[in-house]
Every structure is written in C-alpha cells, then in structure tokens.
Amino acid sequence: MMFDYVSFLQNLSNGVLIGGVYALIGVGLTLVFGVMKIINFAHGDFVILGMYCAVLLNSLLGWDPYLSLLVAMPLGFMAGALLQRLVLSRLMEAPPESSLLVTLGLALVIGNILLLTFGAEPKSVNVSYASSTVSLGKVSFSIILLLAGLATMVVIAGLYTVLNHTELGRAIRATADNRLGAELVGINTRWIEAVVFGIGMALAVTAGVVLIPLLFATPTFSGAIFTLKAFVVTVLGGLGNIGAAIAGGLLLGVVEVMGASYLTSDYRDAYGLLVFLLILLLRPEGLFGKTVKRV
C-alpha cells in the first residue's frame, strides 16, 4: 500500500495543534514549579474555572468566549495572587508535600463550589464556528484549534518578554534560581511568589476559556484529567522550564495523535506516558531540562 502523505500531514498538523493546547495547559504549572517548587494539583481545576467564567459571561451577557478572556485573565491573576498570600504562603516552613496536599484540598473545594453553584450538568458555549476549518491544499485545520494555538503563541511570547526583558522578570528568574540570593539583593520574594502564582492561574484560566468552544465544563470530573495532562507535559520537557513545556506539549500532542492514528486509540494516553518514561530513563531532568550537578 502506498504511504498516504496527505493523511500523514493531516495527522501531524492535528498533533501539533492539540500539542499547542497541551502546552498552554502545562506552561502555567511549570512556571509555578520553577519559582515556588510546588506541584499544583489544582491546576486543572483552575482551567475549569476559566471554562465556567466563559460559560457564565456567554449565558448572561452573550459574550463570545474569547472576549471573556478580558475578564477571566485579570480575575485569574488576582485570585491566584490572593490564594498564594492567604494559603500557600503559610506553608513556607512546612515539608514540600504540604503544598501538594493543600492544592489537592483546593482542587476539591473549587470543584465542589462549582458543583453547588452551577449544578453537575456539563456546560459549554456553542459558537457558530465550532467545527469550521480552513484548508491548506488537502490538509484542513480546525479554526478553534488554530485560535488556541494562536493564544498559546501570544501568551508564550508575552511571558517570554516579561521574564527576559523586564525588571519583574529578572526578579522572578532570580527567585527561581536562588531564593536566598534573591532576598539578599533586596528582592521581595514573597511578593514575587504571589505574582508568579497569579500568572500561573491566569494562564490556566486562559487555557480554559480557549478550550470551551471545543469542550464541556464539568465541575468535578475533568479537573484531574487536565492536571494529569499538565504534569506529563511539564515533565516531558523538564519541570520549571517554559520553553521546554512548549516542546513537551507539542511532543505529547504529536505522539498521542500519531499513536491513535497508526496504532490503536485504546492506548492513546499510554503513548505519551511511555515516551515520558523513556525520556525519564535517558534524561531524568526532562528532554530539555538542565542537568543538575550534584553539589
């Protein structure tokens, strides 16, 4: 049988686009880990919060989901910063697993508050362009996925600029590299951590808003799934490295879609995990992570 180049290209491009979505989900998690060294189990629930924000604005005011980013992102940032100040900052002295537990508790709290306010029924926003495509030759691209990819690029570019070309970004990087050192040169690391967690949550919320034309929001079910995907993405690339999270997301998307297209879809999630284990074996710090020298 002749190799079908068209469908190969179609699958590859789908994989890249799906990977862009994964990257968007993963990048906030990796940023938070890089600076605060905590694994945020509520990350997926933040994504869900973004979805509900878009659903609410759409049903009340008839807003297009993408327009609700204007509200969701600042709200997400403030909520994140507040959460860090009120809850996570209390765990400075505690063992590292404490943050894991607290965010786990937080995930339960968020999911169940959503359940009590919005009910358990899945909610979504139906936009007219939900299944529209644009074609390039014989390969077609989903508009929603393209928009998600665009959002990922904008967000990453913005984040990159902030981290590398602003005073704030320098302070964030300094805190990530060496907390004590950063404090010694006069950086208010407590404030930086609040900002970082705020950014992390704003990114998760953005992912939720961008995904809602594609998916359903459910209060207590899909949060854990998004969290898991974000974990795999970040570890694939290397925890705490933003560029690597993008690469990890793209890799995960391509591996999953290729596996499901040419092998069997039963094990779709396992393909990503197997690649993940393989990378762990060969490069424990992730595909693009810095190799940490033992001191």
Binding site: L91, G105, L108, V109, T220
Partner: peptide
C-alpha cells in the same frame, strides 16, 4: 460534603 472535606484537608495541612 466533599467541599467540607476539601476544606478540612487544607486546614489540617496549613
């Protein structure tokens, strides 16, 4: 009940 349970976890850990 799950909401209260989540809050309990947070309070104990904090």
């Amino acid at each position: 009940n799950m909401l209260i349970y989540g809050l309990l976890i947070m309070v104990v850990v904090i």
